[in-house]
Design a protein around this nucleic acid. Structure first.
Length: 237
DNA sequence: CCAAAGATGCGCT
DNA sequence: GCGCATCTTTGGG
């Protein structure tokens, strides 16, 4: 389980460092696991964030101590966020891929598929089972009422650094932000190796040019969006 | 009521 | 594999 100080950092650093980590969710006797491949950061003082819309009871978790889970329901699905350093700052878990290992085997994958069927009732391609913020929540059975305002705990729900290597990150604009709401900020982070399995592959967009719409970040290379921040990378061990 | 950090299907290339 | 129209479901206004 990631230690609480992991989230007590700039949300953009947390978002990037979450790539390659595994979200674990106990479901009855099974552990459901998904490796994170896409995240977005949202800051209080910026117009794309829910926090910028004001502090209300349903958004209270955004202002609670770093590591607090904030969930909301929108567009027919649940979305999963975690608060970071600074009130109102958070990361959104945007997409993942099912992760198989000693803790989560074939039965876990089958459970995830069953929890998140296609609209027509059929089974989803495992490659796209968690390719979206609400699809991820569906596959892991994460619901607002149960989890918002709560913290991770090793018995039910947590994030683990399994040492997965993410040598290159695609940094892009966030998706679904209306014009005039700081849509230009490059606060979206995608594991370059897994780009084809995220919500919209940033590398296959002909209209996007490197340097303006996206940029490649190699492991250890600082995020140019973060001025004056030279925090050391989180040890992966 | 109706907008919302979305997802899907369809037509096209 | 793209882009856009259409469907979605909840809770805050």
């Amino acid at each position: 389980m990631l230690p609480p100080p992991f989230f007590d950092r700039d949300a953009r650093v947390v978002a990037r460092d979450l790539l390659g980590c595994v979200l674990r969710r106990r479901h009855g006797a099974l552990w459901l696991s998904a490796r994170i491949i896409e995240t977005e950061a949202y800051l209080h003082e910026e117009r794309g964030s829910h926090a910028s819309l004001g502090r209300t009871p349903s958004r209270e978790a955004l202002f609670m101590r770093p590591g607090t889970i904030y969930m909301y329901f929108s567009r027919a699905g649940d979305s999963f966020n975690v608060s970071c350093r600074g009130p109102g700052n958070a990361v959104l878990f945007k997409s993942a891929v099912p992760h198989l290992d000693a803790r989560s085997g074939r039965e876990s994958l089958e459970r995830m598929a069953k929890l998140n069927p296609r609209r027509d009732g059929g089974m989803r391609d495992p490659d796209r089972l968690c390719s979206g913020q609400t699809l991820l929540c569906g596959s892991l059975d994460l619901k607002v009422r149960r989890w918002t305002g709560r913290s991770f705990d090793s018995d039910e729900l947590y994030v683990e650094d399994v040492g997965w290597s993410v040598p290159e990150v695609v940094q892009t604009r966030r998706l679904g932000i209306p014009e005039g709401r700081d849509e230009h900020l490059l606060y979206r982070y995608v594991d370059a190796v897994e780009a084809r399995r995220c919500t919209q592959n940033p590398l296959s967009k002909r209209a996007w040019t490197e340097g303006r719409d996206y940029r490649m970040l190699r492991a250890g290379e600082p995020d140019p969006e973060i001025r004056g921040s030279r925090e050391p990378p989180t040890p992966r061990a």
